[in-house]
């Protein structure tokens, strides 16, 4: 168990940057009045952020990933979370084996 000084400094700096982003939103909404326009923008944030996170994997990584994302989305309309995710993981594994990637 060693602790390098530079590594420790880097970890603390990363943690500080992350905490900053996590509390900044709270500070922001204290100073910005929430009207109808701001409310609409806030409501769009959850789907917009989640879509942005998955878009490169879903659309430009490979056919197996695209197929698995579609399968997961369809499964999500009628199955609980864990079942839909299992289907996605299964489809991606089979798909990758099929395309040899």
């Amino acid at each position: 168990m060693t602790l390098d000084q530079n590594t420790f400094l880097a970890i603390v700096a990363m943690a500080a940057a992350t905490v900053l982003t996590r509390v900044a939103g709270l500070v922001l909404i204290r100073f910005v009045a929430i009207g109808p326009q701001q409310k609409r923008a806030l409501e769009a944030i959850p789907p917009a952020v989640l879509m942005a996170v998955i878009a490169p994997t879903a659309l430009v990584t490979g056919p197996a990933e695209t197929l698995a994302t579609v399968a997961t989305a369809i499964a999500a309309t009628r199955l609980p979370l864990l079942a839909a995710v299992s289907i996605g993981v299964f489809v991606v594994a089979v798909g990758r084996a099929a395309v040899g990637a």
Partner: peptide
């Protein structure tokens, strides 16, 4: 992690 700014603004309300 800049997305966390939007996330905390949203959940904060």
């Amino acid at each position: 992690n800049i997305r966390h700014v939007l996330m905390s603004a949203s959940i904060g309300t």
